[in-house]
């Protein structure tokens, strides 16, 4: 009786292991660290890539700065889609990235957004008004969109004036959450977060002119861990394909090749 139980247990364990390993066997699996602004398009790109190649992707989202710190300390990622170009450059300098596998996959746009459909005007003049209580930005020390927001406020000469009303999200996703929940009336967020299928999803927004802040060019980088991972390399190639670019474009991203 005891022996039989043992057999059943061993069989069960074996089956469970098979079930866990089976999906990974036919193709490779890659872990992708993704800057928070790119979470939306990533959700669309992953199934497209998986069904086209049979590879599997595991996605982790965070602020570019936070992911940078994690990768530097051995976080098990194969590919890093950053929100800027300086972070991947630092990782390459530190020898964590693979030479020759870094390129700009998209250029992001900064917008001033409110969920109130009438609050934000076409020139951002609302920033000078008293019609709002809180302005949310991403932490400028960690998130490229936060840095761009500070640059924009600096250009408008408004930093000191709005500072008492500034709140910071740890990354651009949390920043959007502050505005979307109505706790902050205004927020500098990524165009990709409030745009889907080529249209604004809700509220009102002002597209900050490109030249008001350093361009938010976003670099992809192959990490040492993904050097020999076919899924990782294939995904980087897929990012440059027309199909992937079409998806990104619908989220408001631009590409260096198109010029301004």
């Amino acid at each position: 009786m005891r022996r039989r139980l043992q057999h059943v247990l061993i069989c069960g364990l074996w089956l469970a292991m098979l079930a866990v390993m089976a999906p990974a066997m036919p193709a490779a699996e890659a872990r992708i660290a993704v800057a928070a602004n790119f979470a939306g398009p990533m959700q669309r790109l992953v199934p497209l890539f998986e069904s086209a190649t049979g590879h599997r992707l595991i996605v982790a989202v965070g602020s570019t700065g936070a992911l940078h710190a994690q990768i530097r300390h051995g976080a098990p990622f194969d590919v890093f889609l950053a929100g800027d170009t300086t972070t991947p450059a630092m990782l390459r300098a530190a020898g964590v990235g693979v030479e020759g596998y870094v390129f700009t996959y998209a250029t992001g746009r900064l917008v001033l957004w409110s969920r109130d459909p009438t609050l934000v005007d076409g020139e951002g003049a609302v920033l000078r008004s008293r019609e709002w209580r809180r302005l949310a930005i991403a932490n400028p020390a960690l998130a490229p969109y936060g840095k761009a927001a500070i640059e924009t406020l600096g250009r408008l000469g408004l930093i000191e004036q709005v500072r008492p009303r500034l709140v910071q999200g740890e990354n651009i996703a949390q920043t959007l959450q502050f505005v979307a929940s109505g706790n902050a009336q205004l927020g500098f967020v990524a165009l990709s977060q409030v745009m889907q299928d080529g249209r604004m999803t809700a509220g009102s927004m002002w597209r900050v002119p490109r030249e008001w802040h350093a361009a938010i060019a976003q670099d992809a980088l192959l990490l040492q861990r993904g050097r020999d991972n076919p899924a990782a390399v294939a995904f980087l190639e897929f990012l440059r394909s027309a199909r992937a670019r079409e998806v990104m474009q619908r989220f408001g991203y631009e590409f260096p090749a198109e010029g301004s």
Binding site: G65, A69, R134, L142, L166, V167, G169, N183
Partner: peptide, 26 residues
């Protein structure tokens, strides 16, 4: 604090969130 604070110096930025910010910024 991280969820409802908004990281405002002197108002909602406490030691624990400050440490987190320092670590993330290395």
């Amino acid at each position: 604090v991280l969820m409802i604070g908004g990281n405002i110096p002197g108002e909602t930025r406490v030691i624990s969130t400050q440490i987190y910010g320092y670590v993330e910024a290395m």
